[in-house]
Each structure stands twice: as C-alpha cells, then as structure tokens.
Design a protein around this nucleic acid. Structure first.
Lengths: 338, 338
DNA sequence: GTGAAAGCGCTAACAT
DNA sequence: ATGTTAGCGCTTTCAC
C-alpha cells in the first residue's frame, strides 16, 4: 500500500507538504506542487480513507437510507439514489447505503461511528421514527419527503399539493366536470407517507374551487387491481370524463382497460399522470403528465446536505420543487354530454 | 464522542479488554464481559469506523457497483441491492454504493483507499473493463453475472442457459412446435451482457433438440415497442403458439395485445415469462414463469465475498443458480392446427 | 513556502 | 484472564 509518507519521500518533501498539496489548505510553490503531483500519479497513491477520517474527523461519506418496501415506484427511488451517488462524487463524497431494516437506530450507529458525516433519508413518513434521533444527534441531514413537523429540519420534495392543484386546473380548463383520482396503494395512505395525501389535498382544494366533482380511489399493484379500480370508478360515476393517475405501475393497465372498453383517450376520457417523463413518453398515447423530477431531487438533496455539513449555513427549511405539467396526447376537451 | 478509552475507564478495565470484549478474540471472564457490556450500553458507545479501519486494516465495508443504465429491469437490480445490504449487515458490514459513472478506475480507488475490503459488481459485461483491474488489485470480489473469461474470478448468476432450455422443454412437452422468444432491449445484446445471449443459446439448443422452430426478437421499452414486436412476430409466423418473454417491462403490453387481438392465453397462445415471481403473480392470467431469484443472488453474493475476504477460502468459481419453472395459468397444450 | 511532531481512536502484539 | 504499549496513515498545529 502506498502511503503519504512514501509520496513525500519520493518527491523529496515533508509529509505535511503532500497533505497540503492534496487539500489545498495552504499555498504551495508551483514547483513543489508539480513534483508532488507527479509522485502521486507515479506511485498511484490514494489516501487511506480510515486514516483520513480519524485525523480529520470527517469521513467524506453520505449515508443514504432507503426503504425496504416495495409499494413505492421502484425506478423513481433508484433514479434518486443514482443521482445522489453521482452528485456526491462531485463533492468528493461516497454514499453508504442503509436500508430501513436496521430501524431508526441506524441513525445513531452512523452518527456515532463517524462512518458518515451526513445523511439523506428517503421515504419519510409523517411521524417518522428517525426524526427524533436526527434532532438529538444533530447530524447533517436532508429528508426527501415531508414529515408532519419539519421544524428545524431540511427537507426536499416535489410540491405535491401544487401538483394536485395543477392537475385539477388543467382538467377544469379543458371543461371537465366529473373527474377521478387513481391513487397510490392503500398501504401508502395507511402509512401516512405524505406525498399521496398532499396530492389529494391539493387536488380536492382546487377541484372544489373550480367546481369539479371528483372521486378518489387508491389502487394496488397488478393488472387485476388496476382494472378493478377503474371499472368500479366508471360504474359508480359513469359520467367521469377524466382521470388523474398517481400510480406509475397502474398506467399501462389503465390505458389498456380504457382501450378495451371502447373508450378513446382523449376523445372520451382524458388522462393526466403523475409520473416520470419516460413513463409518460413510452405510453400510447403519450401522456399529459406532471413529471417526478427524480434526478433533480437527488442532486438538490446532496447540495443541501453538503451545504449543511460544511457548516456554511443551516439551510433548515423546505425546498418544494414546483411541479410542471406537460400537455401531451392524453388530455383534451371534455366530451359534450350526450 | 464516546471512545473506547472512556468505556474502559467507566468499566474499570484496560482499553484492550474492551476491544477484546467487542471482537471476541480472546476469552474474557463472565464478570468483566458483563461490566464492559453494561458500560458500552450506558455510554452509547459505537466504535469509530475510521480508527478501526486504520488499526485493523479492514473497513467492514463492501463496495457495490451498480450500472447507470436503465435498459435493465430496475426493480430486480434494486431487489438484489437491498438483499446485499441487509445480508451484509448480518456480517457486520455496510455497503458503499458506486455507480459505473466513475468508470473502471473506481475499482482502483476503492481498493487503494481501503474504503472497502470487498466488492460486488453488478451488470457484468462479457469483456468487462473492470476485470483486469480486479485481477491486478487482487481485491476480494464477486461478480453478479458472467464475463467471457471467468478464470480466477468468483461469479454468481442464474443459470440462463438452463433457463432457456427449461422454457423450451416446457413448451415442447405441451406439444408446441412453433415458438418465439421476446428478448431484452437490443442495447442489452449489443453490449454483450451475457444473460440475454445465454438464455438465447440455451433456448436455441433445446428448441433444436426438441424439434421446435423458433424466432427470436429483441424488444425495447414501452407500449409501442412491445406491441410492435409482437405484431411483427405474429405476422411473420402466424403459426406461433407460444411465447417466451425475457423482458419484464413488456409483459403487460404483450398480454394486452394478445387479449385485444382476440387470442386467448393459454388456449390460443401460451406464455412463459422469465421474471420475478411478483410480476408473474400480478399478471392476468398469472404467468407460468422461470423466476429471477433476486434475493437469493444478493444473499449468496455477500456470502461468497465474505468467505473470500475472511480468507477462509478462495471460492474462485462460478455459482449458477438452477432455474425453477413454475407452471401457472398462462401455458397449456398447443392448440390443434386448423 | 516548508518541516517537525503531536495526536485522532483503535487493534494486536507482547507482556504478566 | 487482563494490562501496556506501539503503531496504523493522516491532518494540523506550531515553528521557522
């Protein structure tokens, strides 16, 4: 193993000089810097992470806690996780993956062991058990999602209330009067993961403001669940002319069920999806959608947590990304009543 | 921060005793052990990861390299990653997440920095750039997937050749004579990720042995791609009575297209999917499938890499999990020719 | 602009 | 069965 001392000897300088060349924490003459850098390259030196963490009290690692659950749309989580990881590298950090299996105590373990010096928590619940521990350890942390009481915490999420309002407005503008919201799995609502409830609240608010009547139904995973939910909606409210879908995995089933039951999209029924762009683009017809900006959420989460960890500021507060609705082929004017 | 020395003082023993209580590397009297354990709990002590790594030359971290690509079925990757993470915890290890963005040099960086003492590589290509570096650093490593030349490497994967043969046999047993394989995205074949080609090879071999004629077509993502691929297959070979599908994201579209074109499954056409069980179970009809044992692959990958890292054995070799085909509702006897 | 040296918290000989 | 102690490789004063 190549050590800093070896690099120093090779370059004919002292160990501290090598250290300072690497960290840039004091000015070095052009000449020395070059010699040291050449030695580093030549010997293939990489600083020992443990030694560095021990001496500097910073691990250069961000812990990422992801849920074990499978009732969320997995590709979105994965995209966020990947965006976090690649962004972290830009800050010379690595990402440690933790699952919720270990429970809230993982927060304590990570903080106390100095394994990571910042944490990003995904799948935050309204009353998340990890939050008290977070407050008590005072670790730099960012939540992806909103808890009930975000005071003193740094959170980032899509503004789902605005998302619900946006969808309602879009449909109201098109003249729809009777609409339905096909939501996430029931377990998601039961668990009080904020996003589903916030979307519903925003949608309800604006639906009422715009005089829309609407129905909300959760929807489980799989073909049966999706078609069953849709049939029941259409049976109960035959006058429904538009659907808002906040359930990526149900999208193909829903579209197919509409096709099969002889309803044309958007002529007979309009569809707005809340989903990543690629899902919307790969559907037929391409879906009018409010996109889930997974990449941006991951990137911003890292930026927020790095700002905190570097002590530059305690950006304690909410970052709510504004939803963007992209009209595509799946929404159109409400059909004239028969 | 609570240190080992503080625990020692609190328990009235020497630091090394505390260390040995924790590691179990030498026998401790019942009495001392209890006192030390109580002190640890009382003070909320967690060993400093960096210090431990520095002193012991072991980080207790497994690096997991995942692909950035999105043409693989994401939920399977995620399930493997989660299984790896939870299994790693059973070995008192954590998982460091690396993406392929950093390139092959990540292997060098991790090995040289001592950040991880073992690596698991996913999405292995036949001529994977990371392999030479792996051989040269001599790091403990397990590949999920098979490269062209696995000599000296430890690999684990589903036995996709046997999977192909199994599917062919199942259909031949049911009397089918003309079958088609709906494969992964074309990019997957171009990149020479082994699994798709191996499935095809196994399927071809057994199809020939059993006298099946067959067609193979890659299939991209999305509704258009899936239905287009299927229409073309049926146009080209109207006598096709069975489909093997190695493309999870195409499954719902395929089933719907069959339904819509008036073909009953399995009366008119049988379908065998190569997919995780939950995809098979959530389809209608439930699919006869060869399951992708994501959990087991993750778990076994950790076991293999731990065995290696602990030096107990260099299990250099392939672990090919035997495929299991579960007959469900989507396959039946070949229809009598008209 | 550069060097010397004191730790960081732990492990693992080497003691007894 | 337990204690003493010398590092592990790095960062960071302190000194010039």
């Amino acid at each position: 193993m190549v050590t800093l001392a070896q690099v120093a000897r090779h370059a004919g300088v002292s160990p501290s000089t090598v250290s300072y060349v690497i960290s840039g924490k004091r000015s070095i003459s052009q000449d020395t810097r070059l010699r040291v850098e050449r030695s580093i390259a030549e010997l293939g030196y990489h600083p020992h992470a443990g030694a560095r963490a021990l001496a500097s009290n910073r691990s250069n690692v961000i812990a990422l806690m992801i849920p074990l659950r499978t009732d969320m749309f997995v590709p979105v989580m994965m995209e966020i996780a990947i965006a976090i990881t690649t962004t972290a590298r830009r800050y010379a950090h690595d990402v440690l993956l933790l699952t919720s299996e270990e429970g809230p105590s993982a927060v304590k373990r990570i903080a106390a062991s100095g394994l990571a010096d910042a944490m990003i928590l995904m799948d935050v619940e309204l009353e998340d058990e990890r939050i008290p521990l977070l407050r008590q350890t005072g670790a730099a942390a960012v939540l992806v999602g909103l808890p009930a009481d975000p005071a003193g915490l740094t959170c980032i999420d899509l503004d789902f209330e605005a998302t619900g309002r946006l969808a309602a407005d879009h449909l109201a503008d098109l003249g729809h009067r009777e609409v339905a919201l096909v939501g996430a799995a029931e377990s998601v609502y039961r668990r009080h993961t904020g996003f589903a409830e916030r979307t519903l609240a925003g949608f309800r608010q604006q639906a009422e403001a715009r005089g829309l009547s609407f129905l909300h139904r959760p929807c489980g995973v799989g073909h049966e669940a999706a078609t069953g939910t849709l049939s029941r909606i259409l049976a109960e409210r035959p006058g429904t002319t538009a659907l808002v879908v906040q359930n990526e995995s149900a999208v193909p089933h829903l579209l197919n069920h509409l096709r099969q039951s002889g309803r044309a999209v958007p002529e007979d029924i309009s569809v707005v999806a809340i989903c990543p762009d690629d899902v919307a683009l790969h559907s037929t017809p391409q879906l009018t959608s409010v996109s889930i900006p997974a990449q941006e959420m991951g990137r911003r989460a890292v930026e927020l947590v790095m700002a905190q960890a570097s002590g530059r500021q305690h950006t304690t507060g909410l970052t709510l990304l504004s939803p963007v609705l992209t009209p595509r082929e799946s929404t159109g004017p409400a059909p004239r009543p028969l």
